[in-house]
Amino acid sequence: MVHIVKQLMAVPGVIAAGEFAYGGDRFSYEGALTAEFARMASILCRSNTVNVNMQSEIYDSFAENSGYKPAQGWIVRGAQISVCNVGNYFAFIENRPELLNDVMAIMRAKLGDIGDDLLVSLYARIGGDVKEALY
């Protein structure tokens, strides 16, 4: 798993890739970002991951076992750049033909299905018995 970032960075058109801790306390990255921008990117990606996981919880309350939960990730498609996030890994990529599909295929294949305990990890810093509160 430690090679995912290196594997992503070997793909032409990948600008930067990294990993953030679910607890929000650390990150690592490679590519064309300064350390401060990578820190900001990690915070942004973690925030969006919390958001889509919250939404998947709500969706599941409307339609149980519908195949959405647990959320695996998200994509922001910009005009020339996209951000892909699967689990706690992210990649900034150029909008080259087929690159988005290739990067998503690599991330999904390498990371496998993201488990159902993701929210507990994401909320761990809130304090208290987050498992009881969530489930």
């Binding site: 939960k69 959320a71 498609r77």
Partner: peptide, 19 residues
């Protein structure tokens, strides 16, 4: 950051377990 290329936003995707 001064990094351009995101706006105007083209779209967003939420990736679930099966869809």
């Amino acid at each position: 950051t001064g990094q351009k290329g995101f706006e105007p936003l083209q779209g967003f995707s939420m990736i679930g377990l099966e869809w």
